[in-house]
């Protein structure tokens, strides 16, 4: 195991997640199309989730093979459990991310219905045009 390469690749992963975060934040904030905002928002959610799981990782040591947090032995002895604790990654972030993904899907479905409503009422999903239309309506009502 080449520790320099491992560290470099891990930090490269973290930096890529930061870059993804910045790009999708740009998409959510600066793009005018609502569907584009929605796509960027889903990627943003996923980036944060990957980052949460990444925090629960642990270093490979020589002679130590990591495993997912699931016991494979149905009648474990104390030695097997001790070995399992030494080898397994952190299960807590995984448990949080698991529910976050499904709930994120439900929230995204709600947002899609909202986008469809907006598209029906304004005949466009461009937020600049929608803002202009609303300004015009208010101006007409005031005059």
């Amino acid at each position: 195991m080449d520790i320099e390469l491992v560290k470099f690749m891990f930090i490269l992963t973290v930096m890529s997640l930061y870059l993804n975060f910045a790009i999708t934040l740009y998409g959510v904030v600066a793009k005018v199309n609502l569907v584009k905002k929605l796509i960027a928002l889903t990627i943003l959610q996923d980036t944060v989730n990957v980052f949460t799981v990444l925090i629960g990782y642990r270093l490979w040591r020589p002679g130590l093979i990591l495993q997912p947090p699931a016991l494979t032995d149905m009648n474990p002895t104390p030695e097997i459990i001790k070995d399992f604790v030494e080898r397994s990654v952190d299960p807590l972030p995984q448990a949080f991310v698991l529910t976050a993904i499904v709930i994120g899907l439900a929230v995204t479905l709600f947002l899609t219905t909202i986008v469809l409503h907006v598209n029906y009422h304004f005949k466009t999903v461009n937020v600049d045009e929608i803002g202009g239309m609303k300004r015009r309506y208010i101006h007409e009502e005031a005059v």
Binding site: N49, V53, L66, P68, V89, Q94, V97, I101
Partner: peptide, 9 residues
Amino acid sequence: LMAPDIVLV
């Protein structure tokens, strides 16, 4: 990252 639960969902 050893998270098969999350891969499934």
